[in-house]
């Protein structure tokens, strides 16, 4: 299997009035041809910013520094704005989180999809319309002819997200980036959208980067997963491997907070205490250390190494290194950890 996308040491920093927010801090990964790769993390982990940085869709205040972003072997991080435009939509397309606001309210949905075709192909207006209607049928939009002439406000959330999918797939791109495409939809609609997505993936062979905070969706859809936290990749593994032997304490925490249908009524979900780090002053060591029940002194002071656990499974954790487990805990309880964390932020203020 060859990689269609290879990202090395991607960093994205937002320069704000309060200082530099380091949203993405050195992310490296690859996406294989025809693969669905899940990226999981809570809000603020940098997963959306990371994915938008790939085709430079982040706000102008953001600065993207990357070792390289290789798409089919070509480094698109060095492309000019003009060159990059021929990649956007045609080679790498995106679906966004909120289908309510992602479509232009004053343009018919048909015209919005047709615009993609007129930008990247030489079809006549008639051919474009026929193709858009074919796309609508493909993403299972009923009454495609009628929908073509309708405006976004006349469509339900699920229908709009299908329009977004038709839009993203119009040019049969090599990569589809789906940024939490089902988060804003209710569960039944979510299921339908995922079904359509899986079907299209097997028909067209598009590689998909699927961003979500929902491990259950990842388990259902993806073949491999990256766990992101504090702008870094904490763990990456195949889907079978990550559920069989999760190595990173953060991944364990995420799994413990998933409700299960079989669980007893009395069993309480276990949340991860604390909140994500402040990326204005990212912690010196492992970003998860202040919330980590297993943390050692070394975790707070030094960035954790990415440890190869075999079978393509990597985890960024000190505990997986020789002799780390024998080190002292820096604090006895999680409450202590949070208290200490607060002291640290107060020091920096």
């Amino acid at each position: 299997m060859s990689a269609i996308l290879e990202v090395n040491n991607l960093k994205t920093t937002f320069h704000t009035g309060n200082g530099a927010v380091q949203a993405v801090r050195g992310v490296s990964f690859h996406l294989n041809e025809g693969e669905i790769l899940g990226i999981v993390g809570e809000s603020g982990s940098g997963k959306s910013v990371m994915s938008m940085s790939l085709i430079r869709l982040v706000a102008p205040t953001a600065k993207i520094e990357a070792g390289s972003i290789l798409y089919k072997g070509k480094d698109i991080s060095t492309y000019s704005a003009r060159q990059l435009r021929s990649i956007r939509g045609k080679e790498i397309a995106m679906i966004f989180q909120d289908p309510m606001s992602s479509l232009n309210p004053v343009m018919t949905v048909g015209a919005q999809v047709a615009e993609m075709l007129s930008e990247h192909s030489r079809l006549s207006a008639k051919e474009r319309k026929a193709q858009v209607i074919a796309l609508f049928n493909r993403v299972r939009i009923p009454e495609a002819e009628k929908r073509y002439r309708q405006y976004p406000h006349e469509l339900s959330g699920g229908m709009r997200q299908r329009v977004m999918m038709a839009l993203a797939l119009a040019m049969q791109p090599g990569i589809l980036i789906a940024d939490e495409p089902t988060t804003a939809l209710d569960v039944t609609i979510q299921d339908q959208i995922l079904k359509v997505m899986r079907q299209l993936q097997s028909e067209l062979g598009t590689s998909i980067l699927f961003i979500t905070h929902d491990l259950a969706v990842v388990a259902d859809l993806c073949s491999r997963v990256l766990v992101m936290y504090g702008g870094q990749i904490m763990e990456d593994a195949s889907i079978d491997d990550i559920f069989a032997r999760p190595l990173h304490p953060y991944t364990l925490g995420l799994m413990a907070s998933i409700p299960s249908l079989e669980q007893e009524k009395a069993t309480r979900l276990v949340p991860i205490p604390g909140s994500p780090p402040d990326m204005l002053n990212p912690p010196a060591g492992c970003p998860f250390a202040p919330r980590c029940p297993e943390a050692r002194e070394i975790c707070l002071e030094n960035p954790a190494p990415l440890v190869d656990a075999g079978k393509g499974h990597h985890s960024r954790c000190w505990l997986l290194t020789e002799g780390a487990r024998e080190l002292d805990h820096p604090f006895r309880t999680v409450t202590d950890a949070m208290y200490r964390n607060r002291e640290r932020t107060e020091d920096t203020l």
């Binding site: 869709l57 021929s86 956007r88 939509g89 995106m94 966004f96 232009n104 615009e115 993609m116 930008e119």
Partner: peptide, 13 residues
Amino acid sequence: QDYIRTARSKGLS
């Protein structure tokens, strides 16, 4: 707005 980002993601100038 989000739909401007969508428009940019299409590769429009």
